[in-house]
Design a protein around this nucleic acid. Sequence first.
DNA 1: CTTGCGATTAGCCATTTTCCTATTTAGCTA
DNA 2: TAGCTAAATAGGAAAATGGCTAATCGCAAG
Lengths: 101, 101
Amino acid sequence: MDKIFKALASEPRRRILHHLAEEPMTVGEIADNFEMAMPSISRHLAVLKEAGVVREQKRGQYVLYSLATEELTDQLYDFLSPFCERARGIVEERPRRRKRD
Amino acid sequence: MDKIFKALASEPRRRILHHLAEEPMTVGEIADNFEMAMPSISRHLAVLKEAGVVREQKRGQYVLYSLATEELTDQLYDFLSPFCERARGIVEERPRRRKRD
DNA sequence: CTTGCGATTAGCCATTTTCCTATTTAGCTA
DNA sequence: TAGCTAAATAGGAAAATGGCTAATCGCAAG
């Protein structure tokens, strides 16, 4: 729970997620959309991956990152559910996968 | 959008929200649940208020804080909707109130 | 008016975050 | 193998965060 909010508490990282929502991309492709140097993007991706909201797969010398949509939505729904009956209903509509908080 | 994630990226602040979900409380009552000194709690509350997820009302020399449940859920749904068709449907199910991002 | 109490603000210090550049790792290809 | 390139890691500087104590503000009750 802490990791995902820490991860999302950064405008560049949220922008990365929006880019990855379009399609999986390599680190270099992502970096092209930012002023930031590639190592900084790489660190942001590590934070996002640690939070479970992106996945990486090696493609030769490239690394392809993609959005873990369900992880992202599930974690936020899990957070919201105690606050919101409507959300709780939605969340419990289907089998849960994770129980961490 | 930035403010709410910055606000939620803190375990003490999320704990405060859970307490306020039970019932509105004064700063002192909230502080009783923490090791932290009252000024620290007060600052956390200011951050949460700035993010729009709590409201304050003066009660004599006391200040009563309460959870702004809809603000909290709406903002997170707004963030989620571009990533999740299901969430978008839910969000647009009723009139929107805010458009900031 | 003065004292007391709840809450906030101010000032300080330690820790964490975030960016950079330089270096290293790992895979591709001549 | 040697050289090129993508990505990650290391190290360091600047800024932001989070806690404290002390000081201040505002209301209430003597």
